[in-house]
């Protein structure tokens, strides 16, 4: 299960978060996110959440005003990809406390931190719900320690 990329777009097609697990040029990136944006946004609610794009599959899911879009290999399990998206949302929900689009916009670095603990270069590294948040918390704590020292100095 190798995830190629994950990005979030708003209903207006604005990118809210973008993570690419492949080295591709900026031009290509924006082309893909633009094309997928229009593709996904054009689909109706009842339709299935998998689309084929080039020669891989794209799994998306809508949460409130945000579309979570994930690119996977054509042989990967689509349902598992949906699960990954859901897990990601769940974790953010816990961390921000009832996550909303604005949380992600203004705290985008935190969202990245959660994602980096959940996936490592596109591979699921942690399937435990608690573990991911625990690690993010630990890192935050470490940051605060720095802060603390900073004040003391």
């Amino acid at each position: 299960m190798a995830i190629q990329f994950l990005f979030l777009i708003s209903r207006q097609g604005k990118t809210r978060l973008a993570k690419w697990y492949q080295t591709i040029s900026q031009k290509e990136k924006s082309k893909i996110s633009r094309e997928l944006g229009t593709l996904v946004l054009s689909r109706r609610a009842k339709m299935c959440n998998v689309v084929e794009y080039r020669d891989f599959k794209v799994v998306y899911r809508r949460y409130a005003s945000l579309f979570f879009i994930v690119g996977i290999n054509s042989h990967d399990n689509e349902l598992l990809a949906l699960e990954v998206i859901h897990r990601f949302v769940e974790q953010m929900d816990k961390m921000y406390g009832n996550v909303c689009e604005l949380d992600i916009i203004f705290g985008f670095d935190k969202a990245y931190h959660v994602l980096d603990e959940l996936l490592l270069d596109g591979y699921i590294q942690e399937s435990s719900r608690k573990e991911v948040l625990k690690r993010v918390d630990q890192q935050d704590e470490l940051e605060n320690m720095d802060e603390f020292e900073h004040i003391l100095s």
Binding site: A2, Q4, Q22, I24, I32, D55, F56, G71, G122
Partner: peptide, 8 residues
């Protein structure tokens, strides 16, 4: 053989 920029 098609080269895909996105494939690992």
């Amino acid at each position: 053989k098609k080269k895909n920029a996105l494939k690992i």
